[in-house]
Design a protein around this nucleic acid. Structure first.
Length: 698
DNA sequence: GCAAGGTC
């Protein structure tokens, strides 16, 4: 069959190609393969249309080959598979688009309608379809993958791309590249001048402010001065149970005052002065976007955000859930009834789905956040082979969350009882769920606890079983964990939903941070922050992102030309890099010292599976051997042997099998490998003895 | 080799 004279619709990713084909096809959707890539052929109003996907960015910026040192500003666009081996899969997509572009008579970009999507389409047209197609191509603009929206966006396709938007995308890429590459190279170069050996160091518009956030918290904790305070509690005896009440002042920072109050209350009975009951409505949760899912999976299952993202991606590829890299908390364009009907066929979910289907109206408690291209994360209701382990748990959470958003508000009752003990006021609080409603749909993931108070009568006196005064002290602020730092990045508006988990990984990889439950900045990470604050302070604050956004907005509106912005960045950085270079020796010494020290520190390897404290490298007093053990030893005796290890470099990732850390170890003779710390992990052989490139060739 | 951003 000869394919000629068709319209070529280019999408950002494979799943969208199919949706567009299904929406526009008057008759059958024909799927074809070119290599491994599927594209679709349809007829729409007697017109032949081919729909073919990209895989996100298939072009990336690359400096001129062999160019060493810094500063560097000469960049050009190159196919991702030429720039990096890890992007080899992208070649097939590029080849397919090249093949299809040859005989196309017209072109439409149907990439996501955002800055990156505009650029993905623009680059494909320019470098694959031919320069002349850039001006001719039309643009489909849609904000949901529904038939109606997609058909409408095709019928009313914009006559051309938004060139200003594409320009702002180009600028974003170049500015990030300039700042990131130059600063990273400068750091590595400085290290090399001091040690004559190469070490990958990095800095960037997103990773450095993130590191700074962790660093600042580290400083807060370091500078924290604990204050002692006293609390007075009274255990009140009733027929049913004892009630613990607290003095209304809660914290006494003055010891004498606390002791006086304590004396006043001693030996006195507790008179109930008031019983106040309040009912509150608790609205159901909002649908998941990626960040919400990452937070919840961490808090319920301790899945790190990167793991959650990987599992969600695989569930999406199996057709079980919708597109996971979304910021939306809305069910735009989703037909919940249809999904519930499909879920009702699954014995695991049948009863809950059927219960919801009985409702007259299905109204979801949608959140306010939206996404330019996708609705929230929801189950498709499709059947699959039996899910197990990590996948099954996450899928179950997504299904139950979907159910819960349609539930009625739960009703909670809180009770506050005030007591008079020797003319001092004490109080006790209880809370109780009166009507579960959405809680039953979300079980077992509801985190609320019921604490019921026994019936206490106003005006009645009760015996005080025990009155106590305890000294406590104020606590320093909590360290961030792997999930909360992602939320913080979201708050600061740095990174994107799809990249934040990866950014944290980069900070681990560089040895800047360690720990999962409690993220510590290593002394080396601290040196990086301090060095950059001195020489490239712009890069340590999220303000750089704000400046980018302002400039990019102006390019979008046509107020500014991208060339001006790029030139300006070049000038600024040239100056900064020259100053850096002058101090290179000094900076190198500082980095060297700090790096060596950091390696010898008691590295935090991960989180103790038993008690949640840090796992650190310990030396056994008995045998003198190194092993990984819990930092709260001897309270917790968790430990893992470490055979023949010489130097533990860092935690690489978390083992998917038992969620223990996988660490990178260098043995004597510079043999470097990764291993799961669990001696019984069955996946151990997968990590062991991974040789470095150098070794493999020697 | 280093960024950040797409997607697998």
């Amino acid at each position: 069959m000869e394919l000629k004279n068709y319209e070529l619709i280019i999408t950002e990713k494979p799943s969208v190609s199919l949706r567009i084909a299904e929406s526009l096809a008057d008759g059958k959707v024909r799927a074809h393969k070119h290599g491994k890539v599927t594209y679709f052929e349809i007829e729409h109003k007697n017109k032949k249309i081919i729909i073919a996907p990209a895989v996100g960015h298939v072009f990336t910026l690359k400096h001129r080959v062999g160019k060493k040192g810094y500063p560097i500003f000469e960049v050009r666009w190159l196919p991702t598979y030429e720039a990096s081996k890890s992007a080899a899969f992208a070649k097939q997509y590029v080849d397919t688009l090249k093949f299809l572009a040859k005989h196309a008579s017209s072109y439409i970009s149907a990439c996501d309608y955002d800055i990156e999507g505009e650029l993905i389409g623009y680059n494909i047209l320019k470098f694959i379809c031919g320069d002349d197609t850039v001006k001719k191509a039309r643009r489909m603009k849609f904000s949901a993958l529904t038939k109606e929206e997609l058909t409408n966006s095709y019928e009313h396709a914009l006559p051309h791309l938004d060139f200003n938007l594409a320009d702002s995308g180009i600028s974003r890429h170049i500015l990030d590249w300039y700042w990131g590459m130059n600063t990273s190279r400068a750091l590595s170069h400085a290290y090399k001048t001091a040690t004559s050996s190469y070490l990958t160091l990095s800095a960037g518009r997103v990773q450095t402010p993130t590191l700074k956030v962790l660093y600042d918290r580290e400083q807060e904790i370091k500078n924290f001065k604990a204050l002692p305070f006293w609390v007075i509690t009274a255990l009140i005896k009733t027929k049913e149970q004892d009630v613990l009440s607290l003095h209304e002042k809660e914290k006494f920072f003055n010891k004498a005052e606390a002791e006086k109050v304590f004396e006043n209350c001693k030996g006195k009975d507790a008179l109930v002065t008031s019983v106040v009951k309040r009912r509150t409505e608790q609205t159901p949760p909002t649908p998941f976007n990626l960040s919400d899912l990452q937070q919840e999976a961490y808090s319920l299952f301790k899945y790190v955000p990167k793991l959650t993202q990987a599992i969600a991606q695989s569930l999406y590829e199996k057709g079980l859930i919708s597109y996971p890299r979304t910021g939306s908390q809305k069910l735009t364009g989703v037909d919940p009834k249809h999904i519930l009907q499909k879920l009702a066929e699954n014995p695991l979910y049948s009863s809950k789905a059927k219960k919801l289907l009985l409702e007259k109206e299905l109204v979801a408690n949608e959140g306010t956040k939206t996404d330019p291209a996708h609705p929230c994360i929801y189950p498709t209701g499709e059947k699959s082979e039996k899910l197990e382990g990590l996948d099954a748990r996450l899928y179950d959470l997504i299904v139950k969350r979907f159910f819960a958003t349609f539930g009625k508000s739960a009703i909670r009752e809180t009770q506050t009882v005030n007591f008079n003990i020797g003319h001092e006021t004490f109080f006790a609080k209880g809370s109780l769920t009166i009507e579960k409603n959405w809680h039953t749909l979300y079980e077992p993931y509801v985190k609320l606890k019921d604490e019921e108070l026994p019936p206490l009568k106003e005006g009645k006196s009760y015996k005080v079983k025990n009155l106590s005064i305890d000294q406590k002290e104020t606590q320093p602020p909590q360290r961030y964990n792997a999930a909360s730092v992602i939320r913080k990045m979201e708050e600061l508006g740095i990174g994107t939903k799809a990249t934040r988990a990866q950014t944290l990984q980069t900070l681990y990889d560089r040895g800047y941070v360690s720990g999962i439950n409690q993220l510590h900045v290593t002394s080396f990470g601290a040196t990086i922050v301090e060095t950059l604050e001195e020489y490239v302070p712009e890069l340590t604050s999220e303000q750089l992102t704000r400046n980018f956004e302002d400039e990019i907005e102006k390019i979008q509106s046509g107020e500014l030309k991208k060339e001006v912005v790029i030139k300006e960045a070049e000038e600024t950085l040239t100056k900064i890099m020259l100053e850096f270079k002058e101090k290179e020796e000094k900076i190198g010494e500082r980095l060297k010292k700090s790096y060596y020290k950091s390696r010898q520190e008691q590295a935090i390897i991960g989180t103790c599976p038993n008690c949640g404290s840090n796992l650190i490298i310990r030396v056994s007093r008995a045998s003198g051997k190194q092993f990984i053990g819990c930092s709260s030893y001897p309270k917790c005796k968790t430990g893992f042997p470490l055979p023949q290890a010489a130097l533990i470099m860092r935690t690489v990732k978390t083992c998917e099998h038992d969620k223990l850390p996988i660490i990178q170890v260098i043995r004597k003779g510079r043999r470097r490998f990764e291993m799961c710390i669990s001696p019984t992990c069955p996946s151990k052989k997968d990590w062991g003895n991974k040789k470095t490139k150098k070794e493999a060739t020697s």
